[in-house]
Computed example of a mutant assay.
Amino acid sequence: MAKLILTHEVTGLGAPGDVVDVKDGYARNYLVPRGLATAWTKGAEKEVTAIRRARKAREIETLEEARAVRDSLQGNPVTVSAKSGDAGRLFGAITTAEIADAVKAAGGPSIDRRKIEIAQPIKATGEYTVQVRLHAEVSAKLTVTVVAA
């Protein structure tokens, strides 16, 4: 087992700053090469506190605030435009960063792209629903309409 410090959120494993034990292969082949985690050392405790402080500054503080953001997101669908070809097929796929930018452009709250979960890749025009994790106990379903540019 390898002991690691997460530097980014990993679904099903933990949040930035968490110290986790994972199998050696998972650490060596996935988490460390992608920059999602670093090896745990005694001197890394300072890094952990810095990561936690930065996360706390970005995070939605209270449950009530998270619920208010959820209601705002669910009540206001967003539109993303992308280049498309025949029959509405896109050249590429819609990314979480594009969705986060569309929410901000529509006057919504600033949300972290890593908190957006797309169930199936969005590769055609139409209307889609994506999940946004706002808080440990609150998530929102955001309606995204994809139109041809």
Rank of each mutant, 00 (worst) to 15 (best):
T62R: 10
K115E: 08
I5W: 05
A106C: 12
L13Q: 09
I116R: 00
Q74C: 11
V132T: 06
R70W: 06
L73D: 00
G108I: 02
A136P: 09
R58L: 14
L134N: 00
Q120E: 15
T7V: 14
A37V: 09
R34L: 08
P33I: 06
E127P: 03
G12Q: 09
T49F: 03
V130D: 03
V146M: 05
T145H: 10
G85V: 07
G12W: 05
K104S: 13
G17Y: 02
G85Y: 04
A149T: 09
D101S: 13
T125N: 06
I5K: 02
H135N: 00
V20D: 05
T49A: 11
E64S: 14
T38E: 11
T95K: 05
A50Q: 15
G43M: 00
S81F: 10
L90E: 00
A66H: 04
P109F: 04
E117R: 15
A97T: 10
E9L: 07
E137Y: 12
S81Y: 11
V138K: 03
K46N: 13
K56G: 01
Q131S: 14
K104V: 08
Q120H: 10
V130F: 06
A44K: 13
V19K: 13
P33C: 03
Y30H: 10
G85S: 09
V103P: 00
S84V: 10
T125H: 07
S72M: 14
A100M: 03
V138W: 03
A149Q: 13
R53T: 14
R113K: 12
I122H: 00
T11F: 14
R67C: 01
P121Y: 06
K115M: 07
Q74N: 09
V10M: 05
G75K: 12
I118P: 00
K46M: 10
G17E: 00
T49D: 12
L134S: 05
G25I: 04
T95W: 02
V48N: 07
E61T: 15
K83Q: 10
G25K: 01
Q120D: 10
A140G: 08
A2I: 06
G17P: 06
Q120T: 12
H135V: 02
V22P: 01
Y128R: 06
I118Q: 05
V146K: 02
S84C: 15
E64H: 13
S81A: 14
D21R: 11
T49C: 03
T129I: 12
E127G: 12
H8N: 14
V130H: 00
L142N: 01
A136W: 04
T41M: 11
